[in-house]
């Protein structure tokens, strides 16, 4: 499967609520279990990574949560401080308070500065080789383009200065399909699929970053294949229910209807999901792998679920 984990920098994005954090956490875990030194970074400091790894709050300083697996959260101010320390040898590091406030202001006003500090830190970790792979639990679809396109935007807006110089090497890493890719996550529902398909187009038009894979998350299993569906429908008819009731042997069975109804709901939800999956497949270039992750009936978050998802991903990815 075209070496998803061979890449150095993976951005995981998709509509809110589709399981970005779960997928990012599982990708990191899988990479680490295959001997790689992996860093998983969440861009929202209140994101779900600490819950996924059960590791306590994440911070800018990477935390080793299990052998070779590190977790951190992005903090643009800390990123700026680190940048100043490393690149400009600014003397007032540590006593940066008022300066940081000033930059907070400039970063708010100046388009892309905050985004560049985020993406810059990630690219820097890749360039310095501190980790074999950096997985980013990136922002929801609306903002990821802004983030990935920021270096281009800065290049256009800022004509001189240190940031301008930095964006050149960042773009080299970001635009290299062998190093960097985006993983889009969608659940088999209307708007998550719409957003994913839209993002496929915008990635291509507005950024140089390549689409590495699309992940269909929470895919329900098929309950009845082929002719079994007709049998189920017959069982749900008045006659079918009567015969099944008699077979169970306790006379009238009002709760039997409840059990059959639950199965019917499962079939309906899956059926509508299948249509959305088809749309997703259609909207994704044929050479981009579409990976299915099953719906987890057991716990859907926490380390156990992440391990399960990592195992599924491992099987799908092969390698």
């Amino acid at each position: 499967m075209s070496g998803l984990l061979q890449r150095r920098l993976l951005f995981v994005s998709g509509k809110g609520g589709v399981g970005k954090t779960t997928v990012a956490a599982a990708l990191g875990l899988l990479a680490a279990s295959r001997g790689k030194r992996a860093l998983v970074c969440e861009t929202d400091p209140r994101g779900g990574l600490s819950n996924a790894y059960d590791c306590g709050p994440t911070a800018f300083q990477p935390l080793e949560v299990s052998p070779r697996l590190f977790a951190m959260s992005m903090d643009t101010e800390a990123s700026l401080r680190e940048y100043l320390k490393l690149n400009l040898r600014v003397p007032m590091v540590g006593r940066i308070g008022p300066l940081a406030r000033a930059f907070d202001f400039v970063a708010t006003a100046a388009p892309g500065v905050r985004e560049v500090l985020t993406v810059g830190k990630l690219c820097w970790e890749v360039r310095e080789g501190h980790f074999d792979i950096v997985v980013v639990d990136a922002s929801a679809s609306g903002h990821i383009i802004g983030q990935l396109a920021a270096p281009i935007g800065i290049n256009e807006l800022v004509r001189v200065g240190a940031i301008r110089n930095q964006t050149d090497w960042m773009l080299e890493i970001l635009d290299d399909p062998a190093q960097t890719g985006v993983c889009l996550v969608a659940t088999p529902e209307e708007t998550p699929v719409n957003e994913a398909v839209e993002l496929v187009g915008r990635l291509k038009e507005e950024t140089g970053v390549h689409l590495a894979a699309v992940i269909a998350n929470r895919v329900l299993p098929e309950l009845f294949s082929g002719g079994d569906q007709a049998t189920f429908d017959a069982l749900c008819s008045t006659g079918g229910i009567r015969r099944l009731s008699e077979a169970i042997g306790r006379g009238e069975h009002p709760i039997l209807t409840e059990v059959l109804e639950a199965a019917r709901l499962a079939v309906q939800v899956r059926r509508s999901g299948a249509e959305h999956l088809a749309r997703l497949r259609e909207g994704v270039p044929a050479d981009v792998p579409l990976i299915h992750l099953p719906y987890l009936f057991g716990r859907s978050n926490g380390p156990r679920a992440i391990r399960q998802v990592a195992d599924f991903l491992g099987e799908e990815l092969g390698e």
């Binding site: 309950l223 009845f224 049998t231 189920f232 429908d233 639950a262 199965a263 009936f297």
Partner: peptide
């Protein structure tokens, strides 16, 4: 649709499992 015992059994089993899952 209800004449094949194996098929009916498979469907009944799936209905039961699905309920337990959900």
């Amino acid at each position: 649709a209800l004449s094949d015992p194996e098929r009916v059994a498979r469907v009944i089993g799936a209905v039961g499992h699905s309920f337990t899952n959900f």
